[in-house]
Amino acid sequence: MKTINEMKLSFISKSANESFARSAVAAFLLPLDPTVAEIADVKTAVSEAVTNAVVHAYPDTFGTVTIEAKLTDKGHAVIKIRDRGVGIPDIKQAMEPLYTTSTDERAGLGFAVMQSFMDNVKVRSTVGKGTTVTLEKNFIRAAYGQK
């Protein structure tokens, strides 16, 4: 597998950047000739991870959110969303559907959505240091088409 393109994007953890981030990643993926459904899946998963950084990683302040993405010649995308925020004490518990530490109207479904909309989800986190969520997806047409 050869990497055909890479990008890195950093922005402040303001909620207005949630739509910017998911749209930017969607635009970056266009060379993989994604289907409408594949683009919707990625946008939703990226929105979940970025929103978590905005809401949970930097609860009372603003910090930096960084997205790094890579595309391969076999139609595979790897998208990393990183924050330097509070971190997650128990990742297994955090990823359970309906688990939330929020007192607003949060469903506790962000990780469940990422897992069901992407082919692979990895979470690394250190309390006090931050969290990196890695999302991976294979794009059908780029993998089997003439690209």
Binding site: T51, E105, L109, G110
Partner: peptide, 9 residues
């Protein structure tokens, strides 16, 4: 478009 914030809503 909608993410889990819509479900919470």
């Amino acid at each position: 478009f909608m993410d889990s914030s819509g479900i919470g809503l």
